[in-house]
């Protein structure tokens, strides 16, 4: 009797309904995210059946020919990997430098405006970077850098395959894409690294200073080793952004499947080949192959992001009493 009236009150309050609504929405959200992977898996079935693992393995770079029904993802996977790696190599020192400056050195009055500027750098729409890349940045900076690389590293026997020129006069190339990616991932790496620095307990700095270390020695010998896994996480997060970046890269990489591995030549990335060809893919096998590339991209970015989150979380959870 008493129990029943409790139950009645419970329902009249509406809390069960509220809880049900929240749980339903949360579950729907999980289903949505799972469904993205599931749909890509299903819609790429045709391509997976036709090519199997051959789709993924390295081959001559021009094995992507919609007219002949020949599809292998390697050319675009190569493009994605090489542009992202070059971007990471260029972006890491700059980003860590910014993070050090923002967290450790910069005077307080400058901190807020600088933080805003770095965030603005991240907020500029990707198409705007692309437009600026095509008409301003590539013809000047990328072309001169490309010519310089072709004349120096391009002559070194072991590196010829990577740096042989000439770079197109438009600058549309893997190198150009790497440069634009560098600009786009710097804010991500810098912001996360800055937070890692800020999460390191004060005692670490004070102990090192008390032992007579200079400011730089505190940063280099104490803070960076202390936050190492966090910085690694920041870098991997930047890598995730570079791997998935679509529009700016599509606009500046030249979108071509010519058979060259060189950084100075045009190419494709996984994201750019989908952006460029999916709307025009008439044949079922073609669109299915693009779906499979989407699936691979989804898988890789998933892996990369999960790894990054775990690393960053390990530093911030080690901080006592925060």
């Amino acid at each position: 009797m008493g129990q029943q009236s409790n139950l009645k009150r419970f329902w009249r309050h509406g809390d069960a309904l509220w809880e049900a609504l929240l749980v339903a929405l949360a579950l729907a959200f999980l289903v949505l995210v799972l469904h993205i992977g599931w749909m890509l898996w299903q819609d790429s079935e045709l391509s997976r059946r036709a090519f199997g693992w051959r789709f993924l393995i390295p081959t001559a770079i021009s094995h992507w020919n919609p007219a002949k029904g020949l599809f292998q993802a390697w050319p675009s996977i190569y493009g994605t990997l090489v542009t992202s790696l070059v971007a990471i190599v260029l972006a890491v020192p700059i980003s860590i430098g910014i993070a050090i400056f923002l967290a450790e050195i910069c005077p307080p009055w400058l901190r807020l405006p600088l933080n805003y500027l770095v965030e603005m750098l991240a907020a500029v729409p990707s198409v705007v970077y692309g437009l600026w890349g095509i008409f301003v940045f590539l013809p000047t900076v990328a072309v001169s850098a490309g010519n310089f690389l072709a004349a120096t590293l391009g002559k070194v026997p072991g590196l010829m395959a990577l740096f042989h020129g000439p770079i197109p006069t438009s600058g549309l190339s893997r190198l150009g894409a790497s440069f634009i990616l560098t600009i786009m991932i710097i804010p991500t790496i810098a912001a996360v690294s800055r937070d890692v620095f800020l999460a390191i307990p004060r005692e670490q700095r004070e102990a090192a200073l008390a032992l007579g270390a200079t400011h730089w020695e505190v940063i280099w010998d104490v803070l960076i080793p202390y936050g190492a896994s966090g910085f690694l996480g920041a870098i991997i997060l930047g890598l995730g952004r570079a791997l998935g970046e679509t529009m700016a890269v599509t606009m500046v990489i030249g979108n071509s499947v010519e058979g060259s591995y060189s950084l100075l030549r045009p190419g494709y990335t996984m994201a750019s080949i989908i952006a460029n060809e999916f709307a025009e893919a008439v044949k079922a096998l073609h669109s299915s192959a693009l779906m499979e590339i989407g699936l691979i991209l989804f898988g890789i970015t998933l892996l990369v992001n999960v790894m990054a989150r775990i690393l960053v979380w390990r530093v911030s959870s080690r901080v006592p009493g925060r």
Partner: peptide, 8 residues
């Protein structure tokens, strides 16, 4: 989801 490329 925040890491999934927008093209995907």
């Amino acid at each position: 989801l925040s890491g999934v490329p927008s093209i995907v």
